[in-house]
Design a protein around this nucleic acid. Structure first.
Lengths: 183, 183
DNA sequence: ATATAACCGAACAATGAGTTCGGTAACATA
DNA sequence: TATGTTACCGAACTCATTGTTCGGTTATAT
């Protein structure tokens, strides 16, 4: 990819995340983004069809970043998905989220987290569904599978929200414990 | 209240709910609302400061409607909040929601339910907090109270969402059972 | 060295938000 | 029934924002 394209794209994302930390998505204008990113108007529209697509691509990038990083750690340490420690997948997720590599936390500030978390939930659901055997219990037998998957996924996201609202003061280990107690 | 004011207000709400059933809140314009409601532009703005306030007032009205109706039933039948049947509060909520008196279900269609449910959750949280003793269990001892309240509230809302997505084909009794199994 | 592709910037039309104002009709009160 | 008040109409208006266009300029790849 052309270095110019890459720099422009990064400048837009940076400006966008900065603005998201301050105000709601709906209130952010394209004018503000291009001013902060210091690029021309036409350039913005040559990169992103609309403001909504910008958000969508940002969410995708963050999401991939989290799961790719998780995947790498998995390969290096080789102790994830250990059947004796089913909670390790989620522990790693919480750990990675706390690292806040790409200012993810700013995106997750209470105003806009709904947007990313919705996206997050849709994809996390697939992971949960594929790892459902980890959650077998007395409860799961009495509930429809789709309800059960949806409940686990939602509980993860709600746990994450609670953690963020609490300034992430607890350790990832503690949060993982809360998650498995709740679910 | 002046009959003219009441009629105008109702026409606006009606048009707004109709539109919400078809498209996302962000895509609805004031122009569409006043066309459908068949009123003047200035009239709209004399009733509602902005489109956002219209949504806020609609949510408040729906929310009050649900809880007021619940309150009446409570007075008439006198068997809610029976300590032997802690689930009855939530059963009544599910029952009332299924009745769909004011086209609530259209507002809760998957596109926009996030908005109302957020509002719903904020207020339901207070109810849960005041009735927390109903949920005492092995789990609750090990979790911070604020986490526990937030989890119960979220699980209720997520259960409701799942029910709506499933066309509300289950009975309120079954859903109440699912809710108490999950939480 | 040269062709290509990205960027600039300035202008443009189109849309929607929210306001203003003079005229009309419905309401409450006496 | 007469009168003053208040809500509504409708049409025009300003303003902010969106998304597009185009000719000129600069960075990049080969």
């Amino acid at each position: 990819m052309d270095r110019r394209q890459r720099k422009t794209r990064e400048a837009i994302f940076r400006a966008f995340i900065d603005l998201l930390a301050k105000k709601d998505f709906a209130q952010i204008t394209v004018g503000e983004i291009i001013d902060k990113a210091d690029i021309g108007r036409a350039t913005f529209y040559s990169h992103f069809e609309t403001k909504d697509y910008l958000l969508k691509e940002l969410c995708e990038e963050l999401f991939c970043h989290i799961f790719d990083a998780m995947h790498e750690e998995k390969v290096n340490h080789k102790h994830i998905f250990d059947c004796n420690a089913p909670e390790s997948v989620f522990l790693h997720l919480f750990q990675h989220l706390k690292k806040n590599d790409n200012n993810i936390l700013e995106l997750l500030s209470s105003q806009n987290n709904e947007l990313f978390l919705q996206y997050f939930k849709r994809n996390l659901g697939k992971l949960v569904a594929s790892q459902l055997y980890l959650f077998e219990s007395r409860k799961s037998e009495k509930l429809p599978e789709s309800f059960w998957i949806s409940h686990i996924t939602s509980t993860f996201v709600e746990t994450l929200k609670w953690w963020i609202d609490n300034k992430m003061s607890e350790s990832p280990e503690t949060i993982t414990e809360y998650f498995f107690l709740a679910v």
